[in-house]
Design a protein around this nucleic acid. Structure first.
Length: 448
RNA sequence: GUGGUUGUAGUUCAGCUGGUUAGAACGCCUGAUUGUGGUUCAGGAGGUCGCCGGUUCAAAUCCGGUCUUCCACCCCA
């Protein structure tokens, strides 16, 4: 057992994992860029005040805070004993990418032309207890557009979600809801000011069922009359169209509800002109999402047999407001790369040969032979063929084994005979077949 | 933050109610094969039993603490 270790909920990634992780990042980044979203990065840490109060009480608790230089827990404890205020950590690790993005937008508003479409792929940290699909350090891949109220943005985000998961071959369900619908629901049951409590409880419907939700609402002090009026909500099956009809009847006469229904309708209408091969887009009126800053559409992507969502997001009308920039609405979603990785690992969705990153390995037979290989190696690399020469003239068996474990597709052997003939002995590691080729033939066989 | 769970060779695990030199499989190394891997055969190396403390003549085994793993709740990518 090694004595050294890494913090709870964090992981090292070896070459085998990184190849797969990069496969995911590449696919996501490719789609983001194709839709015109530009990359940005922000610091791992933000000022604590930037982060606090944006994610609700629970979120605040989960933010990793960094103690001020010179400050210590002991000193804080001492201060509290003396009746003074504790020294707050001035900095904290970012909890997500959306709030830092809002801060970035406000801070750089003069240099940004709106609407601003950005993507951002960086780690975030949460002081959570690890469990399945849950880490304390994990990557989010965000796409957001800020400075546009158009629902075309929502439509585009759904396309992006479908395209990413299509590329990765993950079959998913994209759940769609709208905070305005939730507002409409709380309005008709007469509990408008309890929206967060109600929606958080409602969000658990999938997991705990109707009784569980009612129990939680009771515990939170929602009146029985109000809960009784929620009845129709628990029976919301059928097609998107029929759900919309039911909603119309239920909350169509509230201002917020009406608006929410219109928005969802408009999004679905535009989406209906596209084919969705991998994802089903489905209205789910119990979808709430915990983050407080959402105001319109909300999204969540789930996939079978995985306990938590692998992507989520929504529209926030005034996130920049708290940083001093009013009336700028944004919408975006975040892909959870680590969960996507877990899903793909569970369901065996990574391509077969993903770990075979080396095309050609040259066996090293000695100084003279190795020197002869260098020129050939350069030619392969000039043709974008990944290749290497074994650095030591070790035993053939050791070199072959190295090639095998590294997943090399071909092994090239050049000894005295080959040098004299000006040919290469090429062994195909998959079939075991061996043939004598010229360098041109080898290049051709690798590229083709 | 609450509740539960795990920790023995590089890895996955076995080790009965505490009792001598702690085992297996796979992996690793060496050789059969001095220009051939993935198959076969023969041999070999490798463990302060997570860490600290306690009970005992005696602890991998019992007890306490601590760290870690995994799982559920809360919440979330």
């Amino acid at each position: 057992m090694s004595k050294s270790s890494i913090p709870k909920g964090t992981r090292d990634f070896g070459p085998k994992e990184m190849v797969k992780r990069n496969y995911i990042f590449d696919a996501i980044r490719f789609v983001f860029q194709k839709y015109g979203y530009l990359p940005i990065e922000t610091p791992a840490m933000e000022k604590t005040e930037t982060l606090l109060g944006k994610y609700g009480d629970e979120g605040d608790r989960l933010i990793f805070k960094i103690l001020k230089r010179g400050a210590s827990l002991e000193k804080d404890v001492e201060k509290i004993r003396n009746g003074e205020k504790a020294t707050y950590a001035e900095e904290a690790l970012r909890y997500d990418l959306t709030v830092p993005f809002a801060r970035y937008v406000v801070q750089n508003q003069n240099d940004i032309s709106f609407p601003f479409k950005r993507h951002q792929i960086q780690p975030v940290w949460r002081a959570d207890r690890p469990q399945k699909g849950r880490y304390r350090e994990f990557y989010q891949c965000d796409v957001d557009v800020i400075g546009s109220n158009s629902l075309l943005n929502e439509v585009e985000l759904v396309q992006i979600m479908d395209e990413v998961f299509g590329k990765l071959n993950i079959s998913t369900k994209i759940k769609l809801n709208n905070r305005k619908i939730l507002a409409g629901i709380t309005e008709i049951i007469g509990e408008s000011d309890r929206m967060i409590d109600i929606t958080v409880a409602l969000d658990k419907f999938d997991k705990v069922g109707q009784d569980g939700v009612i129990k939680e609402l009771n515990e939170k002090g929602i009146s029985s009359e109000a809960i009784a009026k929620l009845g129709p909500i628990f029976d919301f099956t059928g097609t998107n169209e029929s759900k919309l009809e039911k909603l119309e009847a239920l909350i169509g006469n509230t201002e917020a509800g009406k608006k929410g229904i219109e928005e969802i309708k408009s999004i679905l209408e535009k989406l209906s002109t596209f084919n969705f091969e991998f994802s089903a887009v489905e209205i789910d009126i119990t979808l709430a999402r915990g983050l407080n800053y959402y105001t319109g559409a909300i999204f969540e992507v789930v996939c079978n047999e995985f306990p938590s969502s692998i992507c989520g997001g929504g529209r926030y009308d005034d996130l920049t407001g708290v940083f001093g920039l009013k009336d700028v609405s944004g919408v975006g979603v975040s892909f959870g790369a680590d969960r996507i990785y877990d899903v793909m690992e569970d369901q065996n969705l990574f391509p077969q040969n993903i770990e075979k990153t080396l095309d050609v390995l040259f066996v090293n037979f000695g100084e003279k032979e190795a020197g002869y290989c260098l020129g050939l190696l350069a030619q392969l690399r000039a043709n974008e063929i990944s290749s290497e020469l074994y650095p030591d003239s070790a035993k053939m068996k050791k070199q072959m084994k190295y090639a095998n474990e590294k997943g090399a597709r071909k092994v090239v052997m050049i000894g005295e005979t080959e040098m004299a003939e000006n040919k290469l002995t090429v062994k195909d590691m998959e079939t075991g077949e061996q043939s004598k080729l010229t360098i041109e033939q080898l290049i051709h066989s690798c590229v083709g």
